[in-house]
Design a binder for these strands. Structure first.
Length: 274
DNA sequence: AACGATCCCTGTTGGC
DNA sequence: TGCCAACAGGGATCGT
């Protein structure tokens, strides 16, 4: 669920909560959440007492610059999210990591534990981000970039858009939405797109992500992604194809189709997308 | 090397 | 109503 717009929405909400603040306490309720670190038990010792200088992001990775050559990395996986709460508020189930900051708690909630947190040296950070390509929003690919990334690839273009090496930040929802707006059938071999089609994809990647971001991201239900204050993102009602199997395409009314592509459920309009 | 398949987890949903 | 298989936003890994 958390794709670029959800991670970025979360990041923006956290800036006033975390930037310039000290991580006074850290609790790890589930050690499994600590990964990508040579010695996971170092996590608490490295991050405790540090002041968050700046919150950054690369693709779906949120990056807390702690100074001292340390970066706290948060990845939300499938079901991770952050909740900011008063310490007196009951912790919801699967609150796996808690940072105490001033009079509040920043809580990492992740039922499926596919997400992770780590506190990394520059070398470890490089290793964690190796193969993560240019950010889909901050450094969107040009037509030439995308052409180079897709050239000669036989798998579906949907598969290529999910490949974080090509462009970082798209997930299953927004990949479907980008291809709908670009008018491309998601099952097309990635290498088969004409230049004009690549241009449409290049145009729609940042456009769709900005749109999602402007609405606070996509909350598919109340149990998955929510903003740190507990509110739902409002982009769900504006999705054209994702999760709308059998319903009308907002552009032409044709029933939206669904198939499994790259082991992921994929939605498209057979009229608008060729 | 580049693929597809499988696995990591837990919770919800849909079909019987 | 109740049970259980199928399925879910991501991505690492392991075969072929």
């Amino acid at each position: 669920m958390p794709e670029l717009p959800e991670v970025e929405s979360t990041r923006r909400h956290l800036v006033p909560v975390l930037e310039g603040r000290t991580l006074a306490s850290i609790e790890v309720g589930r050690p499994r959440m600590l990964r990508r670190q040579a010695h996971p038990p170092d996590f608490v010792g490295r991050a405790s007492g540090k002041t968050v200088r700046r919150l950054g992001r690369r693709g779906k990775f949120m990056l807390w610059d702690l100074g001292d050559d340390l970066t706290l990395v948060v990845h939300f996986g499938m079901s991770g999210r952050i909740r900011v709460a008063d310490p007196t508020e009951p912790r919801e189930p699967h609150t796996n990591v808690v940072w105490g900051v001033d009079e509040r708690e920043v809580r990492f909630v992740d039922p499926r534990t596919f997400g992770f947190v780590a506190c990394l040296t520059p070398e470890e950070l490089d290793a964690a981000l190796v193969g993560i390509g240019p950010d889909a929003l901050d450094a969107p690919p040009t037509v030439d970039d995308l052409a180079a990334g897709l050239r000669g690839r036989r798998p579906a273009v949907k598969t290529a858009l999910l490949d974080q090496r090509v462009v970082a930040g798209l997930g299953n929802i927004y990949a479907d939405e980008v291809l709908h707006r670009a008018g491309i059938d998601p099952r097309r071999p990635a290498g088969s797109l004409e230049t004009s089609e690549l241009a449409a994809v290049v145009r729609e990647i940042p456009a769709v992500l900005e749109d999602g971001l402007a609405h606070g991201g996509t909350s598919l239900d109340d149990l998955a992604y929510l903003l740190p204050d507990g509110r739902a993102g409002e982009f769900l009602g504006r999705l054209a194809v994702y999760g709308r199997t059998g319903q009308g395409c907002p552009r032409c009314g044709t029933r939206i189709r669904r198939a499994v592509v790259a082991q992921r459920s994929t939605h498209w309009c057979p009229t608008c997308q060729r």
